[in-house]
């Protein structure tokens, strides 16, 4: 392997460039092979396709609360009484940690549909069964760290940072709702 390139400086620069390019191409190639591995941890196609839930509210009487499952997580559906609606609407907005009007949280005032996962660390707040404690504000009470929600599912007291999320939903008919 006789090499005639004796012009050291020029040769060295070219060598550095070649080596750096090779290493860079190898590193980028490795990164590109790692991406499919990482991406495989994201939701699979079958999981993504199960993203809607339909249910009927026909059997939910006034004052009753039910829990439906959407994407494997609970969603609270509350048929609110007149008193509960009034209470949610007369709150002074400046008292709220996460300011939101009740009107913006329920498409039909009688039916509140909110995510059943506490916005603090994801426990399921109590309040859906008649025997459950509902907290100081008559809504839901999270037993894990004491977050208290009002009859609009808004955070009023405790460590949770946000109101219970309102999932995207639609009334398909008077009594049928689709979430997702």
């Amino acid at each position: 392997m006789a090499n005639t390139a004796h012009a050291e400086p020029a040769g060295e620069t070219r060598r550095d460039f070649l080596l750096h390019t090779t290493v860079a191409v190898g590193a980028v190639g490795t990164a590109m092979m790692v991406w499919p591995l990482i991406h495989s941890m994201n939701p699979a196609a079958d999981t993504l396709s199960l993203s809607t839930t339909e249910f009927s509210i026909a059997g939910v009487t006034e004052g009753q609360r039910i829990v439906v499952v959407w994407r494997g997580n609970p969603v609270f559906v509350a048929h609110r009484t007149k008193a509960e609606i009034d209470e949610a609407r007369k709150v002074n907005l400046s008292e709220l940690k996460d300011v939101q009007k009740d009107e913006d949280r329920a498409q039909k005032p009688e039916f509140l549909i909110v995510s059943g996962s506490c916005t603090h660390l994801g426990c399921i707040p109590l309040g859906s069964k008649p025997t459950d404690p509902k907290g100081e504000f008559g809504g839901w009470f999270c037993p894990c760290h004491g977050s208290q929600y009002d009859t609009s599912g808004r955070i009023r007291k405790g460590p949770a940072p946000r109101n219970l999320d309102v999932p995207p939903y639609k009334y398909l008919s008077e009594t049928t709702v689709r979430i997702g």
Binding site: P36, L37, H39, S40, A44, A45, T47
Partner: peptide, 13 residues
């Protein structure tokens, strides 16, 4: 088959 069809890049892995 779930890996081959539904998981992202599952077929490749």
């Amino acid at each position: 088959e779930h890996i081959m069809r539904d998981v992202n890049y599952g077929w490749l892995i």
